[in-house]
Design a protein around this nucleic acid. Structure first.
Lengths: 122, 122
DNA sequence: TGTTTATTTGAACATCCGTTCATATGTTTA
DNA sequence: TAAACATATGAACGGATGTTCAAATAAACA
């Protein structure tokens, strides 16, 4: 049994050493990839996707969204908080009512790319 | 106390009735939004994001990826399964080794839109 | 054929995450 | 100022999810 490189690595890593290190050099920074995953995580929930889609159509208050999606105001409020933290929505107050709207013109583009993928499947 | 529409709905829903029903008409089907969320859920994990990015650079075998990301082959294999189910990666066998590569030209475009968003924050 | 190598798979475990419920905050109106 | 309304928030609960560990495939080699 010859020298094992690491705790668990097969011989491929030696054979493919050049390719692997080349890929490593080209990989974005850890933090960037983490942020990217965090962003997509926000899109990875049906409720949030529906909220974003609704807000793409019109500015709406919390109870409008709750009524539209047939969900609790509290649940919607919690999700709007997530969306706001991700800088995907913004809000304005008008008396008692708080209106939410999209805070990013890329939301639709991200949607579109996703749509292209899921509609490709046969 | 006047007639309440539902278990929990404020008066906005009455005032904004037209807007809300207009939005409702324009919303995509439930199933479509569900699929879209499922797709983005796949992108919403650092490990999978890193795998996809690596595969965007080169075709790699499981142990290459494990070595590159300094993770267990088992963990990588589990995630590759998720990516394959989402039709984002494909594989080919060459003897003992199984090579993975991207199965979708949109992956990069979805990445790009996400990158534009996260790099916009100041 | 038995062993080694590369990968897959299932169960178990811990953690994360979305909703609910009760309550708090903030604004308007009587 | 008290009541009503719109929204936010924190704790708690249940379900989903990622990694680990052990064991199973599957191909190549001796």
């Amino acid at each position: 049994m010859a020298a094992k490189i690491s705790v668990e690595t097969c011989e491929c890593s030696v054979i493919h050493e050049e390719v692997v290190s080349l890929v490593r050099e080209r990989m974005p920074e850890e933090e960037t990839l983490y942020d990217l995953a965090e962003l997509f995580k926000v899109f990875g929930d049906t409720t949030r996707i529906r909220i974003l889609w609704a807000l793409h159509e019109a500015e709406l208050c919390v109870c409008d969204i709750a009524f539209l999606l047939n969900m609790t105001q509290s649940a919607i409020s919690h999700q709007l908080r997530v969306l706001k933290q991700a800088k995907l929505v913004k809000n304005r107050r008008d008396g008692k009512v708080i209106y939410y709207s999209l805070d990013d013109e890329h939301v639709k583009r991200i949607f579109d790319q996703g749509m292209i993928h899921i509609h490709e499947e046969k």
